[in-house]
Amino acid sequence: MLQEIFAFEFMRNALLAALLSSVACGIIGTYVVVKKIGFISGGIAHTAFGGIGLGYYLGINPLLGVIPFSLAAALAIGLLSKKAKVAEDTAIGTFWAVGMAFGVICIGLKPGYAPDLFSYLFGNILTVPSFDLWMIMLLDLLIIAVVWLLSKEFLAISFDEEYAAVSGLKTTALYLLMLCLIALTVVVMVRVVGIVMVIALLTIPAAIARMLSHSLPGMMIRAVALSALFSICGLWLSCLLDIASGATIILVAGFFFLLAHTWRFVRLLPGVLPG
């Protein structure tokens, strides 16, 4: 069966997309989980739908529309909550809905039916074009380079932002840069699981990895591996059962999340129960 699968270019592309996106997802997801900025990441992802709408309206590759849009969303949400004294969840909620509304209007303005819209919302790993694969790979390299150069600063602002500031680091700039990396990761993930479900793949592999790790680099490696495992399992199951790939990947991830927590609960149980 494997040989049959790899005979098709779209299957090879799908597998490559799953592996490549797992790299960004595991590395950046680690920061999302330890710094507890899942809601911000969800906000950036949903705001990015405006970029897809814009790209569609202008007739360019929607992923090219998403990059500036999600970067702008990351900077705006970050600056509003850090500097303008807007409550963070208010800023996120506003951008979340306004971005999506903008996308809907753009798509409505363009005459004709938008057939692949669904795939941006919920992902369709089976239709990833080669151009997008190259872009995902470039973004991966960029993310790895920035994280490698700033690993100690990112660790510091994740663990103890105040101490980082006391040490003389520009914590707001570093935080905004981290949000921008999340925005780029959203771009990477759009093809695989879509905007609506990005947040699950950003958090679930990293959350399970945290239970097994003693350091951030260790957690990143495990999160990348788990993300790849979930994506490939989901892809395989979706082909087998002929169901939506993005949703299947998320369900696989969710299943393992429950499994990991059940395992942890059972392991701790003897200490909880008397005798």
Binding site: L150, K152, E153, L155, A156, F159, D160, Y163, A164, S167, G168, L169, K170
Partner: peptide
């Protein structure tokens, strides 16, 4: 982390 400084960015 005690060794952090902006010079070592």
């Amino acid at each position: 982390m005690g060794r952090l400084s902006k010079k070592k960015l």
